[in-house]
């Protein structure tokens, strides 16, 4: 059994073998593997007796359920109005500079994927970004650099 298959089986036995478990199962995979691989979706379809297309159709509806490979750390910068007004463009530029990728891309070392997101719910403390599940409000370019460098350091260890 591949590790993905084991993961799917564990998640399904944790949440139950019904369609109602689909979201938690998909979320569980993304938590571990950062995206839903073809293999993962097929295992899920099998376990929950769904068609593979149905699993893909559902997953692709949700912004956080990626179906293309993602880096170990996914950065999502809020791009909605309040963060726009407080300078998300500058934050994105900063990130593009440090990571040497454009929005939508993953770094060569597969360590970071840079994305934007709609309103993250921190409009009073923008600009804001999520790295994986962690939230970083009130960003400035230097603060952003610090944070990302911290992640980079952790990655090399």
């Amino acid at each position: 059994m591949s590790s993905t298959e084991t993961l799917v089986k564990d998640l399904v036995s944790k949440y139950g073998k019904s369609r109602n478990s689909l979201m938690p199962v998909l979320q569980g995979i993304v938590q571990e593997e950062r995206y839903l691989s073809e293999e993962a979706m097929i295992f899920i379809a099998k376990e929950l007796d769904l068609s593979a297309a149905d699993v893909y159709g559902t997953a692709s509806f949700y912004t956080f359920l990626d179906t293309v490979p993602r880096g170990k750390n996914i950065i999502r910068v809020c791009k909605t109005i309040s963060c726009h007004m407080t300078g998300k463009d500058l934050i994105i530029e900063t990130l593009e500079d440090i990571l040497k990728v454009k929005v939508g891309q993953t770094t060569h070392d597969k360590n970071f994927t840079l994305l934007t997101a709609n309103c993250l719910g921190w409009c009073h403390k923008g600009p804001v970004m999520l790295i994986n599940d962690e939230v970083y409000p009130e960003l400035t370019p230097s603060r952003t650099t610090e944070i990302v460098e911290e992640y980079m350091k952790n990655a090399t260890h």
Partner: peptide, 19 residues
Amino acid sequence: SGAYICGEESALFDSMEGL
């Protein structure tokens, strides 16, 4: 998992039902 429309009540139910 990142979908504004799931705040709409019936979409929220769908989402909880794995749709």
